[in-house]
Structure formats: C-alpha cells, structure tokens
C-alpha cells in the first residue's frame, strides 16, 4: 500500500506500473459493461428456456384457465392491443400538437417556462401515481363513489395517455428543435406563411424523430402493469373487448397473476407470456428504427 503510493506519487514514471493500471482500468470498465449485458442475456435465456415449449397456437388463442395446459392469453393480448391503439390515438395528436405549439408558436415568457419545466417533471413521476390519478378522475368522478367511466378500456387508455404524454412531448420538441433554422428561413424567404413553414419544412424533417419518440413511448405504455392494475383490477375475463367501453385485462397483469400461482407450470406460462410481450415490444422498436432510417435518407436527398 505505502509502497504503491510512493511509486505513483513519485515523478519518476514507472512504465510497467502504468501499463498494469491501464489494463486494470480497461478490465474494470469492460466488466461494468458486461454486468448489464450478461444480466440481460441471462434473463432472456432463462425466459426463453422456460417459456418456448409453452408457446403454441392454442396459447395465443385460448382464454385463461385453471389448467395450465389449457390456459391462453387471448383476452390479455387483445386488451394490450386495444389499449395501445387507443393510447396512440390520444397521445399522438395532443403530444405533437403541444410540442409544435411550445416550439413554434409559444412566446418565450415565464408561463411557457413553467409549462416546459412541468412537462419535464411529469415525465419522471412514478407510474402508479398516474394509476391512482386515473382511478380518481376517469373511473370515479373526482374521488367520489359516483362512477364516471367505470373500469373500462377508455379509462385505462386515458390514464396511460397521461403517463406517456410528457415523453411524447419531450421527444417531439427535441426533434422539432433539431431542425436547422435555415430551413425555416428558406421557406419564409419563398413567401410561405407560418403553417406552410411548419407543414412543409419543419415537420417533414422532424417526422422521424417524432415517430421514434412516440413508438418508444408506446412501448413503455404497454409494459406498464401498475397503473393498469389500479384501473382494471381484473385478471380473469373470457371475451375480447368489442368497443372502448368494455372491461379488459392486459399482458403484464396476466403474467403477474401467473407468476404468483403455486403450480410450477404457471411459471412457465408466465415466461411464455413474457416472450409474447417481448416480441411485441421488439417489433415496435424495430418499426421505429426502420421508419427512422427510411425517412432520414429521404430528407437528406
């Protein structure tokens, strides 16, 4: 210990020691990278090993059952798809609209600053808080016992919209801000008015960024269990919701319920459910990457 200190503290450069320290630091950083990747790899390997044998057509097309061999996740799968669709329907226009307003129209004053700071803060609020908020304002009418929407898809979608709106707004603002000002100046110089500038110059180049942000926000929304459990509280339903005012359940809730069962087979079912959820998430991310690449090259042409 003392000796080391003496050597490193000395001006006399010790090449060998420096080399060893260099190698150690390299190993240390490599190791910290691996912790994350190995953890993820182990997790995926474990889930695949456990779940793959259980994935078949019947698993995807059957309703839940007390017999693991007959159980499926059809109602949860459709609940998730419905919820994703409705959430996108609410968040995209509102989120992108808010972003355009804040970036292109809003005057730079105290009020705008307060709004901006609050949007960033909202993005960090734990999801269960949104769940309780959703119960309070969408399921019941402002905390009374009087029902407003009941525990239906619409209430869940509105709650998840609140949850992901800040993310969509932030991502859209980022990509709108990244559009070089020369584009706008150029369009103005051609005689375009404000909307034409936004429509013709700003949005097309910001489009890929907005889309990526939105899809990533959607992937977060469908992985959320806590707020949806607060809203629906359901695990066993045996029908596919036909319209937005029906009761529903989603994949994370179904997986959560299977994990907690005493029989080992249900744990394998949960793993199979996780695989289905992962496939949906990865597909969405792949679409995001694909669209980004496609539109990026186009705007550079």
């Amino acid at each position: 210990m003392n000796k080391d200190k003496f050597i490193t503290g000395n001006i006399n450069p010790n090449r060998r020691l420096r080399k060893i320290i260099g190698a150690c630091v390299y190993l240390l950083f490599l190791l910290s990278t691996c912790v994350g990747i190995i953890g993820l790899a182990l997790l995926i390997f474990d889930v695949l090993k456990e779940g793959i044998p259980w994935i078949n057509w019947q698993f995807l097309t059957d309703f839940p059952s007390r017999d693991p061999k007959e159980a499926g996740l059809l109602s949860a799968l459709f609940g998730t798809i419905w919820l994703m669709f409705l959430t996108a329907l609410f968040t995209v226009p509102i989120g992108v609209g808010a972003a355009i307003y804040l970036e292109e129209y809003a005057p730079r004053n105290l009020l705008t600053r307060i709004i901006e700071i609050n949007v960033s803060n909202l993005a960090g609020v734990p999801s269960i808080v949104y769940g309780l908020l959703g119960i309070g304002i969408f399921v019941y009418r402002f905390g009374s016992d009087e029902m407003f929407l009941d525990r239906v898809l619409m209430a869940g979608a509105l709650t998840l919209s609140l949850l992901v709106l800040p993310i969509v707004i932030l991502a859209s603002r980022e990509s709108i801000r990244a559009v070089p000002d020369s584009y706008r100046q150029g369009a103005y110089a051609m005689g375009a008015d404000k909307w034409q500038v936004i429509k013709g110059a700003v949005l097309p180049s910001a489009f890929s960024g907005i889309l990526t942000g939105t899809i990533l926000a959607m992937s977060r929304a469908i992985g959320e269990a806590a707020p949806v459990i607060a809203i629906t509280a359901l695990v066993y339903i045996t029908y596919i919701p036909a319209h937005p005012f029906e009761r529903f359940t989603v994949l994370p809730i179904q997986i959560f319920n299977w994990v907690a069962r005493p029989q080992d087979d249900f744990r394998s079912l949960a793993a199979a459910g996780i695989i289905v959820l992962l496939v949906i998430l990865l597909t969405m991310n792949a679409i995001a990457v694909f669209l980004r690449n496609k539109y990026q090259t186009r705007s550079e042409e």
């Binding site: 629906t232 695990v235 066993y236 029908y239 009761r247 319920n257």
Partner: peptide, 8 residues
C-alpha cells in the same frame, strides 16, 4: 354470461 374475476 361474462364472469370477470379480479384480485384486489
């Protein structure tokens, strides 16, 4: 008949 079962 639709039977909805929850766990709260």
């Amino acid at each position: 008949v639709r039977v909805n079962v929850g766990v709260s």
